[in-house]
């Protein structure tokens, strides 16, 4: 995407610069408007759009046997996580997930609009009061990933962060049996 942008920018820059030459060939009006003005952006955009939809499709939560269900509730200014596999436990500020398995995070808010974002795992999803949005995340390997709230939420917004801990299989079953923490 970056290369494409640079190329387009270069094209425009060269055309603008070239207009200052004292001798230049005549180009028909229709060429400027129809070819450069309409056909060219349309082609580029179609390609880009197709790519976007294709990638977007893959990010979509899909049904599957081994999808782990967790829930995240934002509030000013911490996140509270709960787990379908562990009904009576919640964690604050740290979300535990298994590595290598798709996880669906059901996101909502207890007060104002927040946004759940773990840059290295997935895009953002807003936490809107009264609604539940589902975001699919997946960590390839065990580790700790920094998460942020990415929608302005007032005074405490600066430090409104959390962590996602991805466990290996053993660690995950330990967590489920309550041996972590």
């Amino acid at each position: 995407m970056l290369t494409g942008s640079i190329l387009i920018f270069a094209l425009v820059a060269i055309l603008v610069a070239a207009s200052f030459r004292s001798r230049k060939g005549t180009i028909q009006d229709r060429f400027w408007v129809l070819i450069l003005g309409i056909a060219f952006p349309a082609t580029v955009l179609l390609a880009l759009l197709g790519y976007g939809l294709f990638v977007g499709e893959r990010l979509l939560p899909r049904q599957g046997a081994d999808v782990v269900q967790v829930a995240a509730e934002g509030r000013q200014w911490d996140w509270r996580f709960s787990y379908d596999d562990l009904p009576d436990q919640t964690t604050e500020g740290v979300l535990h997930i298994p590595a290598g398995r798709p996880v669906d995070v059901a996101i909502t808010s207890a007060d104002v609009v927040h946004s759940f974002w773990v840059p290295r795992l997935a895009g953002k999803m807003d936490a809107v009061p009264g609604r539940v949005n589902v975001l699919r995340i997946e960590a390839d390997a065990p580790g700790t990933f920094a998460g942020l709230s990415a929608e302005f939420s007032g005074r405490g917004y600066n430090n409104f962060t959390f962590d996602v801990v991805a466990h290996d299989a053993a660690g995950w079953s330990n967590f489920l049996t309550g041996e972590t923490e």
Partner: peptide
């Protein structure tokens, strides 16, 4: 799709201006 589409009329204007310069 609609958002990327606005680039077309914008493109028309930009290139018409560059054409004016030529």
């Amino acid at each position: 799709a609609a958002s990327t589409l606005v680039a077309v009329p914008t493109g028309v204007q930009i290139f018409a201006w560059i054409g004016t310069m030529w």
